[in-house]
């Protein structure tokens, strides 16, 4: 319950934060702390120093950007749920966010914190993958843009370098006339996804013309299922097709098994949530 001793500094500006991170002394970034503090309490993380970025204004907030969205890394899940922009355009993100943790976690937890933590069963990575988001990273060394698909690299592993800070996530607009949805089956205790599917679709006369599909909770990271998404294009998403898409989505994926869901069950659930998410998205078109 009690972390090891560490030092704590509050960043006064973005520049200040990047300077601290450049120190290279094992500093961990904290915003809401809802991914990090549980690890600290069990002493699974033992950083020498915490850098609190919650007060840096330019890291928070949701704004319209190139007809899509720009979401600051320190934006809380609560702010996402309260955002009219998200509600009007990105149902997939609303679906997922309303199921993240609980009210208290959503009040304090930040999207950037969750993404940088890269829990393999977290909901948001799948959503950002399906939406084709890109992440702006910065360090004293410079800026770079990393696509969501390149960002998640394994269990608790991302493209972020030690001295880098996740600044914001840029989400492109949905295809015109497109719709989206997220469906997951949750582990009863933790609320994390046993299997979750994020879907963006576009239809023309009931036929799917575009599809993006990402899954989470199944393996060491959230992933895009591009081949499966292609199978859907050109179909009317009939039950047989959905079954094929669901099976294709996890083809070649090493599925995690645990006390809550053996791998065989998770594989099956993946197909179920893929089918249900596609149906839900199409119903919203």
């Amino acid at each position: 319950m009690i972390p090891v001793q560490f030092d704590y500094v509050r960043a006064t500006s973005l520049n200040d934060a990047l300077k601290t991170l450049a120190g290279g002394d094992g500093t961990k970034v904290i915003a809401g702390g809802h991914s990090l503090i549980p690890l600290l309490r069990f002493r699974l993380a033992q950083p020498a120093k915490l850098l609190d970025i919650a007060g840096i204004k330019e890291l928070s907030g949701i704004s319209e950007y190139k007809r899509g969205l720009r979401i600051g890394a320190a934006t809380t899940y609560r702010d996402i749920l309260d955002s009219a922009l998200v509600r009007d355009r990105y149902q997939v993100m609303m679906d997922a966010t309303s199921g993240i943790g609980d009210v208290q976690v959503r009040n304090r937890g930040t999207i950037g914190g969750g993404v940088a933590h890269a829990d393999p069963a977290a909901d948001m990575p799948g959503v950002l993958l399906a939406l084709g988001a890109s992440f702006n990273l910065r360090s004293k060394r410079g800026k770079r843009v990393v696509a969501a698909r390149d960002f998640f690299q394994g269990t608790f592993a991302t493209a972020l370098a030690e001295d880098e800070l996740l600044i914001d996530m840029v989400v492109p607009p949905l295809p015109r006339g497109g719709a989206s949805a997220y469906v997951s089956i949750e582990q009863a205790a933790s609320g994390y996804a046993l299997a979750g599917a994020a879907v963006v679709v576009k239809c023309s006369r009931k036929t799917v013309t575009e599809c993006s599909l990402a899954l989470t909770g199944l393996s060491d990271r959230a992933f895009l299922a591009e081949a499966a998404a292609k199978l859907l294009v050109g179909t009317k998403a009939d039950p047989d097709t959905l079954q094929r898409v669901g099976a294709a989505a996890v083809e070649g994926i090493e599925i995690t098994g645990d006390i809550h869901a053996p791998a065989e069950y998770r594989r099956h659930l993946a197909a179920v949530v893929v089918g249900r998410a596609i149906r839900a998205a199409i119903d919203r078109v």
């Binding site: 582990q187 009863a188 205790a189 933790s190 006390i259 809550h260």
Partner: peptide
Amino acid sequence: IYDDDGQLLTGTMMDYAV
């Protein structure tokens, strides 16, 4: 749930579903 080595796999509220 214990595993065969007697480790409690449901040792926190993350795994024991109150």
